[in-house]
Design a protein around this nucleic acid. Structure first.
Lengths: 291, 291
DNA sequence: CGCTCTGTTGAGCCGCATCAACACCAGTGG
DNA sequence: CCACTGGTGTTGATGCGGCTCAACAGAGCG
């Protein structure tokens, strides 16, 4: 049913072939390989989101029900397709429930910067629901499944429930916190620290929505994607991963990351997960699904 | 009345003396010098914020009145003092109406990264009103004046008006958009482009709240602050400024930036102001106060 | 007066980019 | 069956952008 072999835009070192001066959110995608590990349960309805709310002690039952009602239709996107396009005025709001996506921007020299990675439980286009227009595009890196709500219904629900607004506003605040942390990494961490922080954060986020298997989780990024997320070159990312592997910090193959020495990794990253806003703190080395 | 000579934390290349692993928002401050230019009208009440709303066609009169009522008390902060502290649970919400502030983070090696600059019309601690705890601190770079609202009253106003929530949520969305743009700059722009973008953005934001005088505006950052905002070294920032000056792009002295060749500057920056969310677009080279 | 903060410039070096080549794999078409 | 292609990962060689260290000048302040 889904085309997995859709040619993906070359992300790093792309010079001439891609749209310019635009933000994008894209589903990061790669072809399934024969021995690809998919150990994670499918996420039905917005359980990923609700797990996040729970971890934050954030949402009451009423809001959870409201969200369930609003986001009732499901859509799928093949890897390499756009979940959202910059400057469009989408007719519905999407909540990612499976897969990994990335919002990005391309400059006129063809260089690309991924500004954020979306995992299940994240909203794709809250911005456009409030401001009216997509500020970037989103690409599916993986095969992505989303739940959609009609923009009209969504907006009217917002104007009837201050609680719903507060909860979703909190999502935006967390997104901003994540981006701040990313700015810190880019500006003042070493390349290795930046990479370590990136991985720690994604592990934490994926764990919190019940999508990690202990210290392993699925992360369908190519090294090229990773380079564009970190603001480094592909070659350098390759070498960083090599040193991490040889230092016994992690393994990464077939889109599955396994953190082998979480303590050390966090130390290198100076990772402090409090900015993610989870009250329920995951002990390093112990994932929720084990607890 | 105000102490201007408060020793400021050394921002760049600070090695050992500063608090660690913490976000901060600080009022960026510098001493007033004899010939310091202060050509800008003082901002009474939340006029800066209201100008912003107007530029976005965002807020109705009811909300504007509500905000005026809520933010009725005024406080001042000397340059170098904290407007907000990480991990605190502030008892009120602050809206900056004069001065410039910065939120930042310090890593264990003593390096500092400024994650965002606040100008009049920006809220200091919306995050903590919703999430409950400051995610960073804010330092006054300048002498800062803020209007404050009681957290209790603020929260109850939020739970009574979905419109108020929507408007303030929009502020957070814009903040996130600004940070995304900063990530793009850090990752994929040249250092010169990054600096150019930084200046274009601040000029735009300051203009939109009526605080610029044509192509000049007050920007009380030291080169050290600037380095920490851009993620560069002080020395390199100094050299970038030198080339910009000698290329006739801008002048910058006594905390006043004058953009001399806005077209060229925007070109270098690949600056597209649409992410700031202003419907009412300022023509390059023409400021509102002139129109 | 000395002290601190800021801005400025030079010298030297390193982290990371760039360029290039090659290996591997999955598809694809003859 | 094969050659061929495009995406990805890997490694070496080389060079540059920006960092680090260091020194000095000017301004404001105690």
């Amino acid at each position: 049913m889904f085309q997995f072999s859709i040619p993906r835009w070359r992300l790093s070192n792309a010079k001439a072939e891609a749209p310019r001066n635009s933000y994008c959110v894209f589903a990061l995608g790669r072809r399934p390989s024969g021995n690809m590990i998919r150990p994670f349960a499918r996420c039905r309805l917005p359980t990923a989101l609700l797990a996040k709310f729970r971890a934050r002690n954030a949402a009451g039952l009423a809001v959870a029900d409201l969200i369930k009602q609003l986001f009732s239709r499901e859509r799928s996107f093949a890897a390499g397709t756009d979940l959202a396009r910059q400057f469009s005025q989408p007719a519905n709001c999407a909540l990612l429930i499976e897969g990994v996506a990335a919002q990005y921007r391309i400059l006129s020299n063809g260089r690309r910067q991924i500004t954020s990675i979306l995992v299940p439980g994240d909203f794709v286009n809250l911005h456009s629901m409030i401001v009216g227009q997509e500020p970037y595009s989103v690409l599916a890196l993986d095969m992505c499944r989303v739940l959609v709500a009609e923009a009209e219904q969504f907006r009217s629900a917002l104007s009837n429930s201050t609680e719903l607004g507060r909860i979703l506003w909190m999502e935006t605040l967390t997104e901003a916190a994540i981006q701040r942390e990313s700015i810190v990494s880019m500006g003042r961490r070493t390349a290795l620290g930046h990479l370590a922080h990136f991985i720690c954060e994604l592990h934490e986020r994926v764990s919190m929505v019940g999508k990690a298997a202990g210290n392993s989780f699925q992360l369908p990024l190519t090294q090229s994607d990773l380079a564009d997320a970190l603001g480094l070159s592909v070659v350098h990312v390759n070498r960083l991963l090599k040193t991490m592997r040889s230092d016994g910090l992690l393994s990464w193959s077939n889109s599955v990351v396994s953190i082998l020495n979480e303590y050390k990794l966090r130390e290198i990253a100076e990772f402090d997960p409090s900015y993610l806003g989870f009250r329920q703190v995951r002990q390093a080395g112990v994932s929720f699904s084990e607890a």
